Amino acid sequence: MVRKASIMFVHKDQYKEYKRRHNEVWPEMKKELKAHGVKNYSIFLDSKTGRLFAYLEVEDEALYEKIAQTEICKKWWAYMEPLMETDEDNSPVSIDLQEVFHLD
């Protein structure tokens, strides 16, 4: 299992909507995440800055990276784009974090 963490950014006036949309994640998006080996996916909000800390575990990084090419992922990004800082393809601006410690 590979542990992954990243930081993303939600607009300060969109916290409630961001949470609402994630509370109602589409079943087909959940299915696609699981099909791409995602486990234990959590996102945490720093309400002072709008920074989001995402943590997930994946079975295989190469398999996980393929999710970005799926239609449902692209649809989800477009749905979330008004709420977040995004790249030109609507993917969230994301900073990958390097693991420096883990207690098993």
Rank of each mutant, 00 (worst) to 15 (best):
E85R: 10
K66V: 06
I43K: 05
A62N: 06
K48N: 13
C73N: 13
K39Q: 10
D60V: 03
K31D: 15
Q69I: 06
A62H: 07
R20Q: 14
A62K: 13
V58T: 10
E24P: 01
E24H: 12
S91G: 05
T86Y: 07
S42K: 09
L63G: 01
E61A: 03
D46H: 09
E57W: 05
T86P: 00
E81R: 15
R20F: 07
I95N: 12
K34M: 13
L45W: 06
E24C: 08
R51T: 08
K74M: 12
W26K: 15
P82I: 14
R51K: 15
L45N: 00
I72N: 12
A68V: 06
A54F: 02
E59S: 10
L45P: 01
G50D: 05
Q69P: 00
K74A: 08
K75I: 02
D87I: 04
W76G: 00
L56P: 01
E28T: 06
G50P: 00
S42Y: 13
A35E: 15
T86F: 06
Y64C: 01
L33S: 12
N90L: 05
Y64W: 14
Y79P: 00
W26C: 03
G50A: 08
T86C: 09
S94C: 09
D87R: 15
M84W: 05
T70D: 08
W76H: 13
D60R: 02
K34Q: 15
M84I: 02
G37L: 06
L45F: 01
L83K: 02
K39C: 03
G50I: 07
E81I: 08
C73T: 09
T86G: 04
D87Y: 05
L45K: 01
E57R: 02
Y79R: 06
N23R: 09
N23W: 08
L83Y: 06
K30E: 14
K34N: 11
E85Y: 07
G50H: 08
I95V: 14
L83C: 07
M80S: 00
W76P: 01
A68W: 08
E28R: 12
K75S: 01
E59G: 11
E32L: 12
M29G: 03
G50T: 06
M80C: 02
L56Q: 12
K39V: 04
Y18R: 03
Y79Q: 14
W77L: 04
C73G: 04
L63D: 10
T70I: 05
Q69S: 09
E65D: 15
K30C: 12
N23S: 08
H36E: 11
I43E: 10
P82F: 04
L45D: 06
I95R: 11
Y79D: 15
I43G: 02
E28W: 05
C73F: 10
T86A: 07
E85L: 14
V93R: 12
E28Y: 06
I95L: 13
T49R: 02
K31E: 15
